[in-house]
Computed example of a mutant assay.
Amino acid sequence: MFDSRYVKTFYEVVRTGSFSAAARSLGYTQPAVSQQMKALERDVGTPLFTRVGRGIRLTEAGEALRRHSASILDSLTAAQEQIDAISRLRSGRVRVCAFPSAGATLLPKAMARVAAEHPGIRVELLESEPPESLQLVARGNCDITLAFSYPGQHTEVPEELEEIPLMEDPLTVLLPTGHPLARRRGVRLADLAHERWIAGCVRCRTNFLHACAEEGFTPDIACTTDDNLVMQSLVAAGVGIAMVPALVLSFLCHKNVTGRIVEPHTRRRIYAYALRDHLRIPATALVLDRLSEVAASKSGC
């Protein structure tokens, strides 16, 4: 491999026809040009020039490099321009992996802010739940992942990841609007011990069962679904009630469903994760900043 600076000098020597002319064009001394060409010949492992009187002539290897030198320099220029665009936030791509309720609430507003400030930055959405989503970012399949944990739950975080706390998300109960307890501001789980329930994802279900056990009952789970819209429809139809994070209330789609805070207050914590080295990438840092702003506006933290 050879130094691109030498290729630029070589290109000028060929274009101008001599070392001295290339030196004048580039603002170098002639000895400097001669030294660079000798270094280039060492790099390529063969002579590029032969002396003809006071002039120079390209060898066969020199002719081969001449044919490619312009495209090499064009490619390097294009690469530098692209790198400059990325570093100056004129372009770039950030892949964000989010669990459904964050993908429906935090991410859209963050994406909108990024698009308004830096239209060249492309934010792509992937969906996955923790702990699988943590492995995606650790393997480089995404740049940022959003994940959550409940009190008492341990999440194995790969050591190469940086954890950025975003917000606390209170837990609520989804009730049909005609439910007797829907008129209260808060509801104790113990008051709902006789109800049928709709359970959520594995992590949410584990936390739900633990919370019910602390209140002294085992819930009657009618069915389980990871889909928030399906869960809302089941509650609206009277199939059961559900315990969900407050973020879900931001996209309630049924007028016959209402959410009430769980008492005593229980919260899950939401985090963003990224590879530590990627925190220095301007586009990744920008998206993390906007996610933090949106999360703070929702939680007040």
Score class of each variant (00 low, 15 high):
residue 17 G to A: 08
residue 169 D to Y: 06
residue 153 Q to I: 00
residue 298 K to D: 11
residue 248 V to N: 04
residue 103 G to M: 03
residue 264 P to Y: 02
residue 168 E to R: 12
residue 144 I to N: 03
residue 2 F to N: 05
residue 42 R to S: 15
residue 225 T to Q: 08
residue 205 R to W: 03
residue 144 I to A: 02
residue 19 F to M: 02
residue 252 L to M: 12
residue 86 I to V: 15
residue 155 T to W: 02
residue 241 I to F: 01
residue 54 R to P: 07
residue 225 T to F: 09
residue 222 A to M: 10
residue 287 V to T: 04
residue 29 T to P: 06
residue 195 E to L: 03
residue 173 V to R: 00
residue 118 H to Y: 07
residue 272 A to D: 05
residue 299 S to A: 14
residue 215 E to A: 14
residue 51 R to T: 11
residue 170 P to T: 00
residue 285 A to C: 10
residue 95 R to H: 07
residue 256 N to D: 15
residue 179 H to N: 08
residue 112 A to C: 01
residue 42 R to N: 15
residue 246 A to V: 01
residue 122 R to H: 13
residue 235 V to N: 08
residue 103 G to R: 04
residue 146 L to I: 00
residue 13 V to Q: 12
residue 85 A to Y: 09
residue 114 V to W: 01
residue 110 A to M: 07
residue 221 I to T: 03
residue 75 S to D: 14
residue 153 Q to H: 04
residue 149 S to E: 11
residue 236 A to P: 09
residue 12 E to N: 11
residue 231 M to L: 15
residue 54 R to H: 14
residue 274 A to E: 10
residue 244 V to Q: 11
residue 56 I to P: 05
residue 16 T to A: 07
residue 288 L to V: 13
residue 168 E to V: 14
residue 207 N to Y: 12
residue 261 I to S: 10
residue 228 N to I: 00
residue 76 L to D: 09
residue 220 D to P: 01
residue 281 I to Y: 03
residue 165 P to N: 04
residue 151 P to Q: 04
residue 83 I to Q: 13
residue 13 V to G: 07
residue 139 R to D: 13
residue 108 P to L: 00
residue 245 P to D: 02
residue 277 D to H: 09
residue 290 R to M: 13
residue 229 L to E: 04
residue 130 P to V: 08
residue 11 Y to G: 08
residue 58 L to R: 07
residue 132 E to L: 14
residue 187 V to R: 00
residue 232 Q to R: 03
residue 192 L to Y: 01
residue 259 G to P: 03
residue 78 A to F: 05
residue 28 Y to S: 08
residue 159 E to A: 07
residue 286 L to I: 11
residue 175 L to Q: 02
residue 120 G to R: 01
residue 177 T to M: 13
residue 243 M to P: 01
residue 9 T to C: 06
residue 134 L to Y: 06
residue 1 M to I: 07
residue 291 L to K: 06
residue 239 V to Q: 06
residue 107 L to W: 02
residue 236 A to S: 13
residue 177 T to H: 12
residue 196 R to N: 12
residue 197 W to S: 02
residue 165 P to E: 04
residue 289 D to V: 00
residue 69 S to A: 15
